[in-house]
Design a protein around this nucleic acid. Sequence first.
DNA 1: ATGCCGTGGAAACCACGA
Length: 257
Amino acid sequence: MKIATYNVNSINARLPILQRWLAEEQPDIVCFQELKAIQENFPLQAINDLGYQAIWHGQKSWNGVAIISRLGEVVERRNVLPGDDEDAQSRYIEAEVNGIIIGCLYLPNGNPYPGEKFDYKLRWMERLHRHAADLLATGKPAILCGDYNVIPSEIDAYKPENWVNDALFRPESREAFYKLIDQGWTDAIRQLYPKETIYTYWDYFRNAYGRNAGLRIDHFLLSPQLTGRLTAAGVNRNVRGREKSSDHGPVWIELAD
DNA sequence: ATGCCGTGGAAACCACGA
């Protein structure tokens, strides 16, 4: 089973890229972030035509998340992260597919640091931590994947010294990420490639992709039941190099049945 | 080192992203 996550930076602006990539890679399940579309503007027909069912939670202008599948039914479990009734930003959607719980998340960027947005990021991560514990407690295999907006370690940034006061690399953000790892989740890419330089995002500016000046900020966290089933993982970095690409590339994993 | 680009939405610029 192949599962992917892709921050598309507008699902409608990305539709041609998306159709080509889905046809090439044929992932079974995909989590999308940054739909940048209201609920009514999700391109359901185009997704269905490619053989996928979909659930999504749109929002005007920003954010927005979706899960699509060409396997079993996508049963939505929730479309908000618990813990703050005041939070109107569409950044989390969760489904059960083929007996696996899949949480698709778009974690707040948090810049500038310090400030309200950074505080919101940390509160969001605390909520994620609590919810992640609840998922582990279900005893079901679970995946938490998406755009974490966290650079976990120095090897995940092309020039880590440039990011020391950035919300993506602040110690508070990294510690919150490692708190999830300590809970029992496994960073799939690092399980298979502990020391390699692997990026998932390249800035639109300064020929960042051409210089491979990237970041690793899109992650797959696997519950303990799934770590033994992980057979492969990677980034479709060539997709980032195409015309009209997102600034992120698709990240994928393979699980043994 | 830097929103230098890309997108949406409202208004011919601004917010936002990382």
